[in-house]
Every structure is written in C-alpha cells, then in structure tokens.
Amino acid sequence: MTHTVPHLELTGVSIDFPTPNGPFRALNKVNLKIEEGEFISLIGHSGCGKSTVLNIVAGLYKATEGGVLLDGKEVDEPGPERAVVFQNHSLLPWLTAYENVELAVKQVFKGQKTKPEMKEWIEHNLNLVHMDHAMDKRPDEISGGMKQRVGIARALAMEPKILLMDEPFGALDALTRAHLQDSLMEITSSLGNTVIMITHDVDEAVLLSDRIVMMTNGPAATIGEILEVNLERPRNRVELSDDSEYNHYRHAVLQFLYEKQRNPDDKTEASKTDKEEMSEEASMASEKLTDNKPEAA
C-alpha cells in the first residue's frame, strides 16, 4: 500500500437519469479509493445504486459529475481491462463454454498470443473454475452455477486490471454459492486480482472482502460507511462462523443495513419515525418524493 496514486479512484461521482418527471439523481458524490489487489464488496438495499456504481466503473454508464481514474487514467468507455461478471451470466447462448471464453481471449490477446497459446490459456481459465469437463457444452446444457463459472472464467481470461462482479452468485442456491465463493477466494488470492463485488449477502461480504462499502438508500445514494475486515487469509467459513471477530463484522454490517438504513420498501416503520421529526408540510413533501421515485431496476 505504498502507492501515492490509488489503483482505482472515484471522485465526486454523481449521476442523473432522465425520467419523465425530470432528472433523477441516483448517486450523489460517491468517493472511493481502491488499492491494487483489494477485494471490495458493495452492499446496500435494493435499488440504492450499486449496479449503477459498477456500471460507471465499467464505463457502461457515464457519470454526470465527477469521474473515475484507473491507474491515473480517466475511464470513459468500456474495456476488457475492467472485465464484468454479469448477474445473469450473459453468455452467448449459441457458443459453447470454450467458445464463449475464446471470443474474449481472441479479442484481448489478438496478435499477442499464438493459436496454441490461446487454446492453452482458455483451457487454463476454464480449469481455474473447474469447468474443464464441460467445455464443449452450450449454456442451455449446463446448470446455473456452471454458467456463472464460465462467466467468471471469461472475465478472468481477459486478465483484467480490475474484476467487476454484479451479484455473481445472487441467483444460486446456498450450497452452490458457498462452493463458488470458495473457488473465488482461491483464485483471487493466487492471482491477486482487484475485485469489486456487489452482494446482498452479509456473510458473503464479510467472508470475501478486505473492505465492505455500505451504501445509503437512494435517491441520491452515496457511501454510508466503509468497514475494514481484518480477518486472516485463507479464510474458512466453518471456522469463522464461530469466530467472535467475524461475528462482530457481521453485526456491524447488519446494524448499518437494518438500523441506520432501513429498507426503503419497508415504509410503515421507517416513515413513521421520520414523520415524528418533521413538520406536516415537510412530511407531505417527502412522501411526494418517495412516490416519484422510479421503480428499482
């Protein structure tokens, strides 16, 4: 951590989405510095703007104010050095697992690797996620967990400076999820990737992360708190479940999510306590605001 310039830096990132009722400010002044090799989790209630942050870093959305620097260079378009693992795998359904990874490898290493080198590299990455046995299967022939593995292999194969994952395990059952979390920990600790991962799962965040970035509720969401997780690696989920330090971290995240930032959908309790502190007119205005809020994506 001797860098003077951080690996990735978000400065004053705000974004307005155009809506029929005028611009909707989804993010307001997000500031974040990430060092090389760090594993960051983004956690927050649904619709607060986690995917938006990730899409801005990926270059798929453009910040209205502020910007993102990667190694001192401004991010202004998507690129393979910021590989994305999408929530629903987004593999090309007409290509096999191998061909899906191949598409990325051919594009990124065009002119740098020879054909046999590329083949070896594709197989190596599929090996990393334990998908070598089903390389020639198409996405509709493999399970959800396997698809997600191929998605990860595809992202890893781009040798990205930073790996962006939007709820990569969100759609999986608990067992498969645990399995993939372990795989991911293994891979990132051996490769030293910088990772930003969005999650809804408190255990996942604590288990995997070096730092947990907790976001406030939208609209105009921003970073509420950042929690450093100083658990020793390699981490073992079974041992940790009985570890007081681990449970302390869990508690901190849960407290943030359920006490400091109540679920925005859970109107009854949240708005009642708020109203008590507000005058009549102000509460009416606030209600209007929440009514105008667009549906969470």
Binding site: A58, P78, N88, S90, W94, Q107, V108
Partner: peptide, 27 residues
C-alpha cells in the same frame, strides 16, 4: 437483442463488424 449481450460486446470492445457477425446476427 438482450442488453447484457450488448454490454458484453462493449466490454470486449468488439469492432462494428465483429459485433454484427458474432453477436447481432446469431441472436
């Protein structure tokens, strides 16, 4: 075409032509 596939194409920086015959036509 699914937005996700378009995003994949963008992240990979596929050229206009590659995008057409690798993503657009098959889907």
């Amino acid at each position: 075409i699914s937005k996700d596939l378009i995003n994949v194409s963008k992240v990979l920086r596929l050229s206009w032509l590659t995008n057409i015959y690798k993503i657009v036509i098959p889907s």
